[in-house]
């Protein structure tokens, strides 16, 4: 199973653009989902007992296999089956389903005494949320962010079955031609992307939450 370096050299441009496409398709939905999930998570947290019901429903959404989602979305969105928009929207839905849970779990993990102290020294509900509760909830949110980003990067490839899939196309090429090199290249680059994305999020977490450095969040 030797790698055919000449094939790699000849297709370097294509491999590069597939990698870039892969990264964008996986990461953009996470960013969009994060923006939506923080306020949504706060609202769900505020619903009290109903929160668990909402989280269970999100769990069901999360359980839908990605391929089914890629195929069903064009019907709802009016897009073409080959459109990368389907993939981005599907991944955004999964990301929201998981991140809302992370936000709720994070807000729940804030000790009551801390919240009461903040109120006692004069924080209003909004200031308390933004300056006390959210920062303390962030380690849990970051943990969810890492899970979602890494699994998104793996999931983009699945879309090759419906004719998209960025780096996943290399699996198709290799499979049709009984040729290992593209498959290995696809696997290695996907894992590399996941590793880099995970490291970047970890660095962001260290940079923005220096006080959480010694706390284990996984």
């Amino acid at each position: 199973m030797n790698l055919d370096w000449r094939w790699i050299n000849r297709n370097l441009g294509m491999i590069g653009s597939l990698t870039a496409q892969h990264a964008v398709l996986a990461v953009l939905p996470v960013l969009a989902a994060l923006v939506v999930s923080v306020p949504l998570g706060f609202l769900v947290h505020r619903t009290g007992r109903a929160a668990n019901v909402i989280l269970s429903v999100l769990g069901v959404v999360y359980s839908i296999p990605s391929l089914a989602m890629f195929v069903a979305l064009p019907l709802l969105l009016g897009t073409s089956i080959l459109s990368p928009v389907n993939i981005a929207v599907a991944l955004a839905i999964y990301s929201v389903a998981l991140l809302v849970r992370s936000v709720v779990d994070g807000l729940r993990s804030v000790p009551v005494a801390v919240k009461q102290s903040a109120s006692a020294i004069g924080f209003g509900w909004f200031a308390r949320l933004v300056k006390v509760e959210l920062p303390l909830a962030m380690p849990v949110v970051f943990a969810g962010l890492r899970v979602v980003t890494v699994s998104n990067i793996a999931l983009v490839s699945v879309a090759v079955v419906v004719g998209g899939g960025a780096l996943g196309q290399l699996f198709d090429t290799g499979f049709n031609r009984n040729f290992y090199t593209p498959i290995i290249v696809g696997l290695v680059l996907t894992l590399l992307l996941a590793l880099i994305a995970d490291a970047i999020i970890l660095l962001l977490q260290r940079g923005t939450l220096p006080w959480a450095r010694r706390r284990r969040t996984a």
Binding site: V150, G168, Y180, I183, T190
Partner: peptide, 19 residues
């Protein structure tokens, strides 16, 4: 468990089927 999350299942599958 970390590696399992990062591996694209379809790539793994295609590789094993070819092998």
């Amino acid at each position: 468990s970390n590696a399992a999350r990062a591996i694209p299942s379809i790539g793994f599958l295609v590789l094993v089927v070819l092998l």
